[in-house]
Write a protein that binds this DNA or RNA. Structure first.
Lengths: 160, 160
DNA sequence: TTTCTTGCAAAGAGTTTGCAGCTTC
DNA sequence: GAAGCTGCAAACTCTTTGCAAGAAA
């Protein structure tokens, strides 16, 4: 993890920004919660635990900065808040998401899967693709099992 | 177009809603600007031309209603505003978008293209897909040509 | 010193809500 | 006249900005 911090520090420096304590605390929170899709507010609350004097505006400014440097990706699942997702190192493409419409959980797909599709789009629409956003909305395994169990329960009840 | 209004009217009725003059005006604006990706404000301004007394809140309420009935899809290209996109009749899947990072134009792709990908996702991640959002960010044909011309201009200049 | 960065508070943008009045059945 | 719908204004949420003070080069 320290290496990643160092690399991010270099990225900041090469764009003439500093890795201030506030920025570092913010980056650490993102690294420690890599699996989650935190909103600015979420990040703020977590950073506050390490650096209580930090202001929400600083968090917003840092997240904006990290987005600009492509350290994180700003995503939006349609719930009115922007979320920030650490970009995997060396990942050529932005990963995809599976959003469960039952429980709201968000899973990530690292695999590209879009190579063929992008090829078609570039040749057929003459569109030079730089980035993509792919989100599937549906029902996660857990919620599917939940429904199955309920149906089972109901049939049990009907027997009685 | 009248048929589509009629069908939307029926959809509303079957959910016990009425097609009031304000709602009809809103739907007509959406039909007349099917190619665009209007924000609530955009819709409001256009509706005001037909029905000047309409309020912004009514437009928001109508768009929410239409989203609920799946007449329109609410989308977000990350610029802070929600946009509303009329769902194509009979379209099994939500269409895709090509957003130009130069000029901001948004083109639509009707083709599904994701059949194979969805199959993989459903079997490998056991995720029951209900809907998807796919947006490519890149450079549209026009802006590519613009860049080409500029480069040409520059080389012309260099000659002199 | 000069430049960058921060925290705070205020402002801004987009959206939602409460409510009284108006329609419609 | 009950139920649904509307316009208006106020409220709310998320995000950005202005500014004086602080930290770093």
């Amino acid at each position: 993890m320290e290496n990643r911090i160092d690399r991010i520090k270099k990225q900041l420096h090469s764009a003439s920004y500093k890795l201030t304590p506030q920025r570092e605390a913010t980056v650490r929170v993102l690294l420690e919660n890599e699996e989650d899709h935190l909103s600015a507010e979420d990040v703020y609350l977590l950073v506050k635990e390490k650096a209580p004097e930090i202001g929400l505006a600083t968090v917003y400014r840092t997240l904006e900065l990290l987005t600009e440097l492509k350290v994180v990706d700003k995503i939006n699942f349609g719930d009115g808040v922007s979320r920030y997702d650490l970009r995997k190192e060396g990942a050529a493409h932005f990963h995809h998401h599976l959003v469960c419409i039952e429980c709201g959980s968000v899973a990530e797909i690292e695999e590209d899967l879009l190579e063929d599709v992008e090829e078609i789009v570039e040749s057929k629409w003459k569109f030079k693709i730089k980035d993509h956003r792919l989100t599937f909305h549906g029902i996660c395994v857990k919620c599917q099992e939940k429904v199955d169990n309920e149906q089972e329960d109901n049939s049990e009840l009907n027997k009685v």
